[in-house]
Design a protein around this nucleic acid. Sequence first.
DNA 1: GTAGAATGATTGTAGGACAATATCAGAGGC
DNA 2: GCCTCTGATATTGTCCTACAATCATTCTAC
Lengths: 256, 256
Amino acid sequence: MSNAAMRKTERARSPAPTVLPAHGATVAFIVERLREEILAGRLAPGSRLVEIDLTARFAVSRGPVREGLRRLSADGLIEHRPHRGAVVRRLTEREIRELFSIRIEMEALAARLAAAADAPDRRSRFIASIEPIYSDGARNPCDYLRENAAFHDAVMALADNHALRDLAARLQLPLIMAQVGDILTAPVLVTSVREHRMVAEAILKRDPTAASARMRAHLGRAAAVALEGRAARVPEEIWNGEPSPRARARRSRGSA
Amino acid sequence: MSNAAMRKTERARSPAPTVLPAHGATVAFIVERLREEILAGRLAPGSRLVEIDLTARFAVSRGPVREGLRRLSADGLIEHRPHRGAVVRRLTEREIRELFSIRIEMEALAARLAAAADAPDRRSRFIASIEPIYSDGARNPCDYLRENAAFHDAVMALADNHALRDLAARLQLPLIMAQVGDILTAPVLVTSVREHRMVAEAILKRDPTAASARMRAHLGRAAAVALEGRAARVPEEIWNGEPSPRARARRSRGSA
DNA sequence: GTAGAATGATTGTAGGACAATATCAGAGGC
DNA sequence: GCCTCTGATATTGTCCTACAATCATTCTAC
């Protein structure tokens, strides 16, 4: 199937978005939709995001679309190439390694701050939000991802460093996760949950050193798993985005 | 003097920018100009950046102006308030503290990686770029800021973690520096330069632990100096941006 | 003097137009 | 047959105009 045909179908299928964004929320609407699709893997790495197509898909004008793409680009979810358009970013192994090593430091800092935090209200909120990690039931990967995000965000919240929380949110961990998705086998999940509990324990005991060290260990292991799984999955290098954005011309000329 | 009058003067004075940006570089041009003015302090914290005024000042349309503002906003140099416009960001004491505590971790990581780095070519480039820190002459604050930026960037380069370098660049250290500017007294500079040398020594000796610890100490002290100086300078709180964006209405009605 | 309406400034969005550029298909030369 | 050059095409970058929505101030009525 040609790109042209595919895109026309998409346009036809959703001439109006499910819900219209309120005034002043158009950009946010677009960003959220695209982000969700990218992280869910429905937009694979390398997929092209063409402004015209998006205007049709979301029934908005090019202005908000461009702004939305720029924001996704700033967040590192897509890549911009001048006059070529945006494509869903594919992280290289090196980038994953780099991002993990940064994230380790940030999360270790957060764990330390969290363990040292004194505010009783924040502590009780922390206890409430991490409650799911003490569940003994089996988890499917999707559940785990949610639980994992909630846990790390709870640590950030207790640490109470806004700038840190913002920065961590922009560190593409979700993107990494999306790109290594099927690594999350049952034993991996069990180990991760156990590590979460150990981190939590140190934080609750107000032991900054242990909290930081355990967080470091947890993420270090996660990084290893992610990189290993990825290596097994993709030969790397072979990847360079969609090959032919060109079938379109022929098609439209033919039908016009 | 009213805002209206001031802006009219500006518009008249620069109907065409000094150099016209090439096609495809308009946004970058605007971003660079504004960034430079903000960091140099010519645009004080709280200054309003009105799209219409900027289109006139740079002789471009609203599109690129909006894009530029978004980018500055993403970099944290300005703040956006819906339907109110952008203002040059003023960091609160809390934000400065938070940003420094993050930066400490990032730079400590960089120092550790740099000390552990093996590549001879990168090491020699590092040696070349930090050469200025061994100069014994007195420095003025401006020189020092340049030397400081170069030193920290050299460490990042040797560490060879692209993501880390990007992130560090977006950590508003320049903005912090711009907002604590006159703290840089002679003894402060001397101390800083000495600390740079100690960090460099550890890196050159390939001692990751010492490099990381010394970088931590250096930045910790820098943070203390910045916060202290700032507290002495500004009573805080009294600040909320320009008070009257409204003198304009009266004026234009009166003159029309 | 204060609640509420009017006013004006400013942004948010739409939509159309054209220029600049990257890429690709095919023609023509070796 | 392979390579280079050229033109066609897709796509973005920029400009323009217009209008709706919203915020802050000012004015008005009580």
